[in-house]
Design a binder for these strands. Structure first.
Lengths: 224, 224
DNA sequence: ACTCCTGTTTAACGTGGCATTAACGCCACG
DNA sequence: CGTGGCGTTAATGCCACGTTAAACAGGAGT
């Protein structure tokens, strides 16, 4: 893990540096705000630890600067007790967490781990095929940036079709996927859902339909 | 934070209850050991405060009972000076910490914080997402400089939603987070709170709703 | 003790989304 | 050219959710 530490107090910096290295991280240190901001914008860091009180450029200004330049590196603020009220301001400017000095090294390490864990996940299970991504937890499909809301039944059917892309899926299989058993559901209910899916996910420019009908058998989801 | 207090002395119970509430926690109280044990096994509490001397079932028996049934809720024992020797026994049965009565409220609060930090590995005190910062100790949300006051229940729910930003959170999970157990709370109570949150944190200019409904499933807090 | 205030919970009612079916038009394939 | 499978649209009923207001409880201040 590459960590950037921006801290002017060399005693604290050395301490933190040693602790982080012992935990297996690579640490870069900057003693000034302006330099730190540049390093953050240039370098590829996984986390930045940013002191609130710095000579020249305050921690808040650094924060504001890098965030305004589309830097998304997770930032953990280090602050003395007397500037705790300013912490909210920091969060408003895009900080990810904060820690009050003096702090135990273990707590800092735990926070760093927490931050990286938090920013790294957030990739839900998604099925992808033919330029369409299906997020079944959120029940949405994404097609070249555009998000399309789907109902639960639509997701259930599209999921099977996409999973079996390039293969014919029979009407019976689809009904089973959506309703469990084939009874209790009238004949054309499935047609209605296929229609709704086709409407929501309009065919792309190539003219090739996404969901093709195989007469007398079932449906096929386009492969590639 | 959902806390269960098992204490037969109503004077002390009231005092502790008030203190914990002021610190932003949800408190459930039981005056008897048997009831307390059941609540602990049933409900989803983050910490339990357990008096040693109880009518009917002693604190130690409660401890033994719940631990034998695979209950891992952190337990902090409350004990009078004369039963301090029994504390060792309590630790042997799976207690996490103890406190001698009479105690200062602040000390209890610190212990509770310490226990939850130890077990829950430090959820940061301020959550930030989609231009909103939530300070759950002060019970306020900040949005581009503007501070919005929230009630404890609102914070409990918003906290879960923000922590799981970008992911769907089911109604059951939310109810569990706010009330511990799913019983005892009528169906639409959650809707009312969601409504209050949406009213207080009005959607931003982009038109994208901050808290989106996933019909039949739950809610989702906007990511980014 | 009384009242005000605030937060929580419940109840009543409105609204909209979703699932399902029916009706009907069209197309495919014999 | 006809039959059966499929497409399309609209209507219906149900249920989840939204919204508002009022009941309720506890605490703070007088």
């Amino acid at each position: 893990m590459n960590i950037l530490l921006i801290e002017d107090d060399k005693r604290i910096a050395a301490l933190v540096d040693r602790g982080l290295r012992e935990d297996g991280h690579n640490v870069s240190i900057s003693f000034s705000g302006t330099e730190g901001a540049e390093m953050m914008l240039g370098g590829q860091y996984d986390v930045a630890l940013l002191d609130m009180l710095l000579p020249g450029m305050t921690g808040l200004s650094v924060l504001e600067t890098v965030r305004s330049r589309r830097c998304t590196t997770p930032i953990l603020m280090l602050t003395a007790v007397d500037s705790v009220p300013k912490v909210l301001e920091a969060f408003d400017l895009g900080a990810d967490d904060y820690l009050v000095k003096p702090f135990l090294l273990e707590i800092l390490l735990a926070r760093v781990r927490a931050i990286t864990r938090r920013t790294k996940n957030a990739v839900p299970p998604v099925l992808q095929a033919s330029g369409i991504a299906l997020d079944r937890t959120q029940r949405v499909a994404v097609r070249n940036g555009q998000t399309v809301a789907l109902t639960s039944k639509q997701v259930a059917l599209l999921e099977v079709l996409m999973y079996r892309r390039g293969l014919v899926t029979s009407r019976e299989e689809l009904i089973e996927a959506g309703w469990g058993t084939a009874d209790k559901v009238k004949a054309n209910t499935l047609d209605v859902y296929i229609h709704s899916l086709r409407t929501k996910l309009k065919d792309d420019e190539t003219g090739r339909p996404l969901i093709r009908t195989v007469h007398g058998t079932g449906y096929i989801f386009a492969n590639e």
